[in-house]
């Protein structure tokens, strides 16, 4: 828990999904409580299917909880849907670019939906593309870009609107190691520069430790099995111990 003003709050949140054709509901999140302070960067770890993405969708207001309360900046992200326009940026696992829009038009999408004037949004989008090394590809359609380039466009799209809250759902998992590492470094710099409150979902312990001081490990159905905050001065030995502990929690031994 941070001492900074509260940005994201989960109070005993549960989420179940009904199965097509009946049968018992699938419980994705159970009695989950946590809070994130303004400007904080939190990494959520967990095995595939542990409800990380459901938690992510609850924060972003794409789904509503079956029980409990989710508040983001004091508002219900599902009920006060329009209130969050321009406030949340999301980097998804896959690039999710609109194939009929060029790279620059994809980056400008959030700005366009936030009613930023055309000339201004294109200028902002162009500067973000340049920042991510895609200046020469502004007018390329997604099919003409590599996977790494597409993900850069999607990162630019999320940052371009200067969101207060940035949600990242395993943004590098679909990239090869070299491309992922290069983008990871840029991404961390951007996070530090913008100061946005960030939730970073990953299944990589090293990635989580590298990105964030605060880590939450989820078990299925999504609830916190382990949580820790590392100080900048934490020694390598202590970090290794945390890594080992997380590994055990993830494998069910801890």
């Amino acid at each position: 828990m941070s001492n900074t003003p509260l940005e994201i709050l989960f109070e005993r949140v549960s989420k179940s999904f009904s199965r097509p054709g009946g049968g018992p509901a699938f419980e994705a999140v159970r009695d989950l409580s946590f809070s994130v302070g303004r400007g904080e960067l939190v990494a959520i770890l967990g095995k595939t299917g542990c409800g990380k993405s459901t938690t992510f969708n609850l924060i972003s207001g794409l789904i509503r909880p079956s029980a409990g309360r989710v508040a983001v900046q004091g508002h219900d992200p599902y009920a006060d849907f329009a209130w969050f326009r321009g406030k949340i940026g999301i980097v998804f696992q896959n690039d999710r670019l609109m194939p009929w829009r060029t790279a620059i038009e994809n980056v400008a999408l959030g700005l366009e939906l936030n009613k930023v004037p055309p000339a201004q949004r294109l200028e902002i989008a162009a500067s973000w593309l340049a920042r991510l090394g895609l200046s020469g590809h502004a007018n390329d359609y997604p099919h003409a870009l590599s996977g790494g380039m597409r993900q850069r466009v999607s990162v630019a799209r999320a940052f371009a609107g200067k969101p207060d809250i940035l949600l990242c759902d395993e943004p590098f998992s679909a990239l090869d190691e070299h491309t992922g590492n290069a983008l990871r470094q840029e991404f961390r710099n951007l996070l530090q520069e913008t100061g946005a409150t960030s939730i970073f979902i990953t299944h990589s312990i090293d990635e989580a430790l590298w990105f964030s001081a605060r880590l939450m490990v989820f078990e299925r159905p999504a609830r916190i099995a382990y949580e820790t905050t590392l100080a900048p001065e934490t020694s390598e030995a202590d970090r290794a111990a945390v890594r080992d502990r997380i590994r055990k929690v993830l494998s069910g031994e801890g």
């Binding site: 849907f81 999710r96 609109m98 009929w100 999408l109 939906l113």
Partner: peptide, 24 residues
Amino acid sequence: KDLFEMTLSFRPTRFDLLRTLIWP
């Protein structure tokens, strides 16, 4: 569904959703 969720994450109006996603 991915594009739909991505677009929704920007909180479009109904008209903007129609214009930017459904129509294309």
